[in-house]
Amino acid sequence: MRRGFFVDCPLARLTHDFGSFGLLEEPSAPGLTAEVDQHAAGIRDSIEQDGVRLSRRSLAYYLTGFLDGCRERGWHSDAVDHDWETLRLLAICRMARERGFVR
């Protein structure tokens, strides 16, 4: 196992959960792909705006803060369509996979 890789990492848990529901498969709708791409760009900009490098740790910190905000607002995903928060979470998972932060 790679040094610094934790099975209990929130990125790994979330990616595993989304993967088990098939949500990380390549979306068939081009519009959905574009929305996830826009969220990924927003996440990257948010992390890097303070001169922090995008890494497993910085993405995990972003995820933790994002989930805290969702909890504070009482958000839960029960919609049939992909809401803003779900798209954001999909983008985080995709970024984690593409950059090799999770397997």
Rank of each mutant, 00 (worst) to 15 (best):
R103A: 12
E35C: 09
M1G: 15
R57P: 00
I92Q: 00
G4D: 14
L24A: 04
F21C: 07
F5D: 15
P30E: 02
V52R: 14
G19S: 15
F21S: 12
A40E: 08
Q38I: 03
L87H: 07
T86E: 12
C70K: 09
F66Q: 07
V36Q: 01
G100R: 12
G22K: 00
R103K: 14
Y62L: 07
S77D: 12
A91M: 06
V80A: 10
V102W: 00
R73L: 06
V36K: 01
D81K: 11
R103Y: 08
F66G: 02
L54G: 00
D17P: 05
D50I: 09
P10F: 08
G65N: 13
R103S: 13
E35G: 05
E35M: 09
V7N: 13
F5H: 14
G69M: 05
V80F: 08
G69E: 11
V52H: 13
R99V: 03
L89H: 02
D45T: 13
C70A: 15
P10A: 12
W84L: 13
F6W: 15
S55H: 03
F21H: 06
P30R: 01
R44D: 12
R56Q: 02
V80M: 08
C9A: 15
A96Q: 06
R44P: 05
D45G: 12
A12S: 12
D81N: 07
D45S: 12
R3E: 15
H76Y: 04
R3P: 11
S46T: 07
D17Q: 14
D45W: 09
E85I: 13
S55K: 04
E25V: 05
M1W: 10
F6K: 15
R13P: 03
A40K: 06
F66E: 08
M95C: 01
E26K: 09
G100V: 03
A79G: 04
G4C: 08
G51Q: 06
P27W: 00
I92A: 06
L89D: 07
H76I: 00
R73E: 01
D17N: 13
F66M: 04
Q49V: 14
P30M: 03
C70W: 06
T86M: 14
R99S: 04
R53K: 12
R2F: 09
G51S: 04
F18G: 03
P10E: 10
L59Y: 06
G74W: 02
V52I: 11
E35L: 08
M95W: 01
R88L: 04
R3F: 14
I47E: 02
T15R: 14
R88F: 03
T86D: 07
P27C: 01
D37F: 06
M95K: 04
W75A: 03
R56A: 08
L63T: 07
S20Q: 12
L89S: 07
D81F: 10
F6N: 14
T86R: 11
A12N: 14
R99I: 04
S46V: 01
G22W: 00
D17K: 15
L87K: 15
D81V: 11
C70Y: 05
R53D: 11
Q49H: 11
